[in-house]
Structures are given as C-alpha cells and as structure tokens.
Amino acid sequence: MDELQRIAAAFPDLAWSRARKVTEGWDHVVVILDDALVFRFPQEAPYTEALAREVEVLDHLGPRLPVRIPRYDRVAPDGSFAGYPLLPGRTLQPEVLDSLDGTAREALVDQLAGFLSALHTAPVAGTPLEQVPPSCLAEDQDDVRSAAAAHLPALLTAAELDDVERILGEVDALLAADLPDVVVHNDVYSRHLLWDDDAARLGVIDFSDMSVGDPAVDFAELYEYGEDFVRAVHERYTGPADPGLLDRAWTYQRWIGVYMLTDHFDVGKTTWEVARETFDRVRAGRGG
C-alpha cells in the first residue's frame, strides 16, 4: 500500500485534489496534500517508535515557543504516520536570507534567538520533555570514524585526511568534557527553517532528532549563513551562559562536514558534490 492509500485508509473523511511526495529527507517520506496538509512517514523503526513522543512533545512546546512549529492533528490509528497543517513560508536557503531587507532580517534573528533560548531553557521535570532521549553523538562519532577510515583515504589528500582526524579528535574531546545538557532540536539548518514574508514569522520543522545534549549543536549549522549571522543570533540568545558555545558550535559544524562525506557512502542521500562542497567550506575557516 503506498502513502496515499494509507492516508485514505486511516482518514476516510479526508479528501484532496493534489498530492506531492518529498523523498529527499533522510528518515521520512513526506506527502503534502493540496499544499495544506503534511503527512510524515518514518522510514526506520526508531523514528516510527518515536512518533508518538514527537506528537506529544510538540503539542507541549507549541504554545511556549515564539515560532511556528508543527502541531500534529491527524495520527494514524496504528501510529505509523501522522499529519499536520502545512507551515507557510519559504525554505530559508542562504540566498533567501540574503534577499531579506533589514527589518525582516532583524525579525528573523530575534525569532530564531528566541526559539533557541526558549527551547534550551524549557523546564523538563514533570513534562513530556522527560521523554526526549539523550544525544547519540557518541554513537554517531563511532560510525563516522569507521566510515571515514573505510572510504576517505582513497579520495582525500594527506592534508585533508589530517584535517578529518583533527576534527574527529576535537569532537572526542567534547564528548569527554563536562558540558551543558539541554533539550535541543538537533537539526537546525536551512531546510528546516521557513520564513513567511507576509507575516514576518519564522517556522521550524522536523523535530524528529530532538535530544538532550550540548546547546552548541543548535548553532552549528547556522554557519551556513556565515559567521556574522551566527554571532547576531548568539548575541540575542538568553539560554545557558556559556562563553565557549560558539567555538564548540564551529567544531560541530566541521564535524558535519566530515559526516556528510561519510553519509555519501553509508546512506547515499548526500551527493559527493554536495558533501565535498560542505567539507571544503568548513576547511576554509569560520569566515570561509
């Protein structure tokens, strides 16, 4: 049974005239009906098992965050997929950010900083956030290190391999350090940020990798927009006081560059060209 058949079987009252499927994500197939309703279908058992938790957590967080987030209002009877009203807005690619005028950009920075601040300081005890699992960065680090050893020596120069090893060593040091533990989105980057020009509102999607970990991870991929943008968001951030946060965020961003190289071989969703572009950018430095 394909996704549309599953939707029709689970929600016989639901009618639509147009449907489009989005398969470019790592962990879910997404079906959008009439540009109004989003259904997410987990592709791996851990994400299916976590769906009920995600629904409950987002329902709890929705009124407490200064941005729009998904609010699931249709969950399949067997819990295998769920849907929510489409969040309006353009995907915040760097060129979209660059197109914003000063007023809109200021509003975006304020809302993004407010989102990270509210999420990172959200009370956990006695709330659905108690269900959020600990970070799996240590396990991911082991996988990346193994994949890097298996695939990268034939493709990278000696200097590049030295950089890979240096980056992995820096992450090992962070994993051994005593760092803040907060609820993090864990995948804050351009494809998960939506900017609604008409309402001047930010939307944040895809909370399926939420975990408890270092707040710096939620700043890491903001370096896609450049150092000045990251610093502007951080200046308005009122989360845990932490003078080393942006340095750690840059380390995690560099790690993502290595992760994407290995993901090309292990999962195949990332093309070598895109992975290589990210790796080259982070090797060029924070201002690169």
Results as ranks from 00 to 15, higher is better:
residue 105 R to G: 00
residue 262 T to K: 06
residue 36 A to M: 05
residue 245 L to G: 02
residue 122 A to M: 15
residue 22 V to Y: 04
residue 28 H to V: 12
residue 224 E to P: 00
residue 265 F to H: 14
residue 56 E to T: 14
residue 28 H to C: 10
residue 225 Y to K: 02
residue 2 D to N: 15
residue 55 V to W: 09
residue 86 L to P: 03
residue 176 A to F: 05
residue 89 G to K: 00
residue 140 D to R: 13
residue 76 A to L: 07
residue 28 H to A: 06
residue 218 D to Q: 05
residue 123 P to F: 12
residue 236 R to M: 03
residue 285 G to L: 04
residue 45 A to E: 15
residue 82 A to T: 06
residue 7 I to T: 01
residue 33 L to Y: 12
residue 258 V to L: 12
residue 147 A to L: 15
residue 80 S to W: 07
residue 148 A to V: 13
residue 262 T to F: 01
residue 94 P to R: 01
residue 282 V to H: 02
residue 230 V to A: 01
residue 287 G to R: 15
residue 146 S to G: 11
residue 84 Y to T: 05
residue 107 A to I: 02
residue 109 V to D: 00
residue 144 V to R: 03
residue 149 A to T: 11
residue 115 F to N: 03
residue 137 L to K: 11
residue 60 H to N: 03
residue 284 A to P: 07
residue 53 R to Y: 01
residue 51 L to G: 08
residue 142 D to V: 14
residue 255 W to Q: 08
residue 93 Q to E: 06
residue 165 E to F: 02
residue 255 W to D: 04
residue 243 P to R: 08
residue 96 V to G: 01
residue 288 G to W: 08
residue 174 L to T: 09
residue 263 D to Y: 13
residue 51 L to H: 11
residue 276 R to C: 07
residue 39 F to D: 09
residue 24 E to F: 09
residue 258 V to T: 08
residue 199 A to C: 11
